[in-house]
Design a binder for these strands. Structure first.
Lengths: 233, 233
DNA sequence: GTCTATACCAGGATAGAC
DNA sequence: GTCTATCCTGGTATAGAC
């Protein structure tokens, strides 16, 4: 069995087109969205979301005016307000929808193998590939979370701890099996998470150096593995 | 010679009180600041900066109104405007001043030893300790840089690459001396940087787990060392 | 040096025509 | 379903009294 997951394979596996995501969002928010025709609504939602992510990631969500947004999305102000009832709700919609997808995809990745080494590799690859496919969302989420109400901030922190937990659980199991050496899984988990996040936070850096996701993934796996593997005799 | 730098030692070495920083800033911006009495100006600048960092780090610089700021700083709107001529200039002042200090302090840390292992340890410790002393500024800088004009954004990226460079240079020298094994210093440098940044970006996480800077520093040094050290025979 | 009062405008939100 | 026109709050910035 090949342990490495290719980016292309991953992409076709999850099939996360903007359209799919927006359809899901539309169906889940049918009562708060005034538009009833699915085709129209989904199409416009895609444009609104893309525009919002683009503009926000340039200058921040708060600095993006709805006038800017309406131009970028190709809709009037009035039309925008048939899809959300306040700018703040738009923010929450974007974040919530993304969180759901991320959780769903990552959870599916641990399954199918029992070897902690393979699991770890899989999760690292899946996390990086996912953040590559949804880069604007990941960046947005990281930067705008602190502008939410405290209640929602907590949900974002929970989401971070959730993925970290997947990592530490694997490491603990590996320790018990004697595959990994004794170490502080909590700190290691946090460090891995930080390195994974760097990939979508510092796009300018890695793009400038012509580093692909797969290359980065293989580096991270190596970096982590060296830390975890038992002392050679 | 003891290779470890204690946090307390570092703190007294650099002596970076908010007052010192603001005095330096006052002296460097004498012509754009209308107030002439040094004592008055420095005192107020300290309050303005602290207030600005506090409020911005809660909800973002853009979302912080100058009315909020004037209340938090204990000055009237009119008084604020004798210290800077626009909200945007305030942003630039804060970021520029901080960058200068960081650069100065970090550059001083590589000196005094030739062993790459010690140098690396020193730089990691110094970076973490510095970001601990100036945590609000580091967080602010990370989050608000994208709201600057492109010209200033580039300066911030340069600053990031500058510290990364210090790391990669040490690693390369270590490789040449056979102390470190062959590896991609560029990726390793980026990863170390990411882990160092996590310390001031995820305060909530590390504070909740009761992890001290010194503990975190020793973890990072261990993590990195394991990656760099040559294969044992 | 600092305050209060005010000018002025940008942005979020909505009503009502089409 | 979508647009235009308009309301009104709350933001930055400044003038002039103290």
């Amino acid at each position: 069995m090949n342990v490495d997951l290719k980016f292309k394979t991953f992409k076709s596996m999850v099939s996360l087109s903007a359209e799919d995501l927006c359809r899901e969002l539309f169906l889940g928010n049918r009562r708060s969205i005034k538009i009833k025709k699915e085709g129209v609504a989904v199409g416009n939602l895609v444009r609104i979301f893309n525009a919002a992510l683009t503009l926000s990631n340039q200058k921040g969500f708060k600095a993006m005016s709805l006038r800017d947004l309406s131009v970028e999305a190709g809709l009037s102000m009035g039309a925008l307000y048939t899809y959300f009832k306040s700018k703040d709700e738009l923010l929450r919609m974007i974040l919530r929808q993304g969180r759901m997808v991320v959780k769903r995809v990552l959870q599916g990745q641990v399954e199918g193998t029992d070897d902690p080494r393979t699991q770890l590799r899989r999760v690292i690859q899946a996390h990086l590939y996912l953040s590559e496919v949804m880069q604007p969302w990941f960046y947005f989420s990281y930067m705008e979370t602190k502008n939410l109400a405290i209640e929602e901030q907590k949900r974002a922190m929970q989401a971070e701890l959730f993925t970290e937990r997947i990592l530490t659980d694997i490491m603990k199991k590996g320790q018990e099996q004697g595959i990994f050496r004794p170490m502080e899984t909590e700190l290691a988990g946090a460090a891995i998470k930080a390195v994974l996040q760097d990939w979508y936070l510092k796009r300018w850096k890695y793009a400038g150096r012509k580093i692909t996701v797969e290359k980065y993934a293989s580096f991270v796996v190596g970096f982590v593995t060296r830390y975890l593997e038992p002392q050679r005799p």
